[in-house]
Design a binder for these strands. Sequence first.
DNA 1: AATGTAATTGCAAAAGTTTTCAACTTTAAC
DNA 2: GTTAAAGTTGAAAACTTTTGCAATTACATT
Lengths: 137, 137
Amino acid sequence: MADPNELREKGLRLTPQRELVLAAVRELGHSTPEEVAEKVRLTHPGINLSTVYRNLETLENVGLVQHTHLGHGGATYHAAEEITHLHLVCGICGSVGDAPIDAAANFVNTLADDYGFKTDVSHFAIYGTCATCTEKL
Amino acid sequence: MADPNELREKGLRLTPQRELVLAAVRELGHSTPEEVAEKVRLTHPGINLSTVYRNLETLENVGLVQHTHLGHGGATYHAAEEITHLHLVCGICGSVGDAPIDAAANFVNTLADDYGFKTDVSHFAIYGTCATCTEKL
DNA sequence: AATGTAATTGCAAAAGTTTTCAACTTTAAC
DNA sequence: GTTAAAGTTGAAAACTTTTGCAATTACATT
C-alpha cells in the first residue's frame, strides 16, 4: 500500500483509488493501464478505467510514476524509483531486454555537455535486434 | 510526390494512397495521423483513416518514416532522413534537435558487445529537455 | 461538528487507433 | 493480353484513451 504522506506531500488528495493505482504500478513493474486496472480491481472492483488513466497521469505529473512507449501503441507505466535500466526493444520478436542505465551515462553526459540536452532516461526505449534474432539472420 | 522506386526497392506495392501518405509526411514535417490524412484528402478525398494509419506503420517498418511520442497520447510522424544524425526530441516544446551519430558510437558498441543488441540507429529518437526549455525552468 | 471549496470519481460519450473482412488492385508470370 | 496470387483498400467493428458532467468526497476552516 502506498504511503499516504507521499501523496499529501505532492499536494494530492488521498483517495483509495489513487493509492491503489500507485501501489499497483509499484507491484507490477512495467504495466499497461489495463494491467493496472486489473490489479486495482482485486481490491476495488468498481473502479472505472478512466479513473485509472487519470490517476496514472496525475501521479506522473507529480513524479511518482513515469510512462514509456515501447514501439507502437500504448504507454507502459512504471514507478519512478525504478529507473534502473534501459529498454532494449527488439523490432523482430518484440522482446524487451534490459541494460543498466550506467551503460548510457557517458552518452547522456555528452548530450548534456555538448548540446545542452537533458535526456529523459525513462523514455529511453532503444530499438534494434536482440541477440537471439541476430543469430537467426 | 514520392519516388516510386523508393517504395519498390523496399518491397512495397505502389498504391496512390501509399505514395500520397509518404509525400504528405515529407511535406508536413512532424505530423499527426489526422494531419497526414487531411493533406492526403486534398488529392484523394476518399482515403480511409485506417489506411493512413496502416501506411504510416508500413512506411515505418521499411524505414521511410518514424514516429515519436511527445509526452502523453498519440504519435507524430516524420520522414526518415538519411541517417546522419540522432534526433533529440524535446518533450516540452516538441522541437527536434540533432546530434551526430558518433556521439552514440561508444554506447551502441557497448550494447552490442555486452548485450548482443544491435541498435537500429534510425529508430534512435532520444527524449528529454532541450537547452531552451531547460533555461525556462 | 458543520460548512464550503475544490479535487476526484463514476458514467457516458467522444475521440483516437487498431483489427477484421470482403472487395479491389498491383504485380509477376505466362 | 490474361491469369493468379498476394498485397491493399474501404468500411465497419472493436479496442484504447480522453473528455464532459453531475455527484461524491477529501480537506481546510470555523
